[in-house]
Amino acid sequence: MDISSKIRRCAKVLEAEIDGEVVLMNSVSGSYCGLDDIGAEVWRQLAQPAAVGELCTALAGVYDGDRATIERETIALLQQMASQQLIEQTAASA
């Protein structure tokens, strides 16, 4: 996964907001995940498929931090979410 990767939410993921926390469940695997504030913002930004670079630009507008740090931490978060089958890569943008 890199800046040009295009990602989207997995189709079979359910979400619920409970006491301000976004809780996700992959309905195929049955696995649960709770998102912190940043994870929840990433999830909201992925309401539509987006390239990682676009996502980082959106997050930079919300959170303080240099671009390189935001990119590095966002990719790490996305990789974790992908490993839990919450998001997936589509065809990379040209």
Binding site: L14, A16, I18, D19, V23, N26, S27, V28, G30
Partner: peptide
């Protein structure tokens, strides 16, 4: 009991109760 639920129904019920 888990085998008697579809995952999405279980999630709906448990998350509604928790909320």
């Amino acid at each position: 009991m888990v085998a008697l639920w579809e995952n999405d129904i279980l999630f709906q019920h448990s998350s509604r109760i928790a909320a």
